[in-house]
C-alpha cells in the first residue's frame, strides 16, 4: 500500500505502523458519571465497516507523525490522509 503523507508525499506502507480505529482519538472525560462505561466503549467497541474506515497510522520510519487515513476496507483505496494532530486540534476547537 502507498500512503500519501500530507507533507512527505507518497510513502510505502512499510514505513508505517498501524494502530486502528481513529475513534481512539476521542478519549472520554474521566470525570463523567459513567466514565467507566464510556471508557469501555472507547477501548473495546469498534465498528467494522465494509467501506470507508478512518484509522490511525504512525510514520515510525519517517517523521513520527500520526496520521488519520481514510481507507476503503473493500478496495484498500485511500481517499483521505490528514495529520492526526490537525484533526485533534479541529476536534478540540469544535467541542
Amino acid at each position: 500500500m502507498i500512503i500519501n503523507h500530507p507533507t512527505l508525499g507518497p510513502r510505502d506502507a512499510a514505513e508505517f505502523v498501524h494502530l486502528g480505529d481513529a475513534t481512539l482519538m476521542n478519549r472520554p472525560d474521566w470525570q463523567a458519571e459513567d466514565a467507566v462505561e464510556q471508557f469501555h466503549e472507547y477501548l473495546y467497541q469498534r465498528d467494522n465497516p465494509a467501506g470507508d474506515y478512518r484509522e490511525l497510522w504512525y510514520h515510525e520510519q519517517g517523521d513520527r507523525s500520526w496520521l488519520v487515513v481514510t481507507r476503503n476496507t473493500l478496495t484498500h483505496e485511500i481517499t483521505d490522509v490528514q495529520m492526526a494532530r490537525d484533526v485533534a486540534m479541529q476536534q478540540a476547537k469544535s467541542s
Binding site: V17, L19, L24, M25, R27, L56, Y58, E60, R64, S65, W66, M83, A84, R85, D86, A88, M89, A92
Partner: peptide, 18 residues
C-alpha cells in the same frame, strides 16, 4: 523503548494536541 515512544507520540499528537 520503541513502543513507549510511539505511545507518547500518540498521546501528544492525538490526545493533547494543544
Amino acid at each position: 523503548a520503541v513502543l513507549v515512544y510511539r505511545r507518547l507520540e500518540f498521546v501528544r499528537q492525538c490526545l493533547c494536541p494543544n
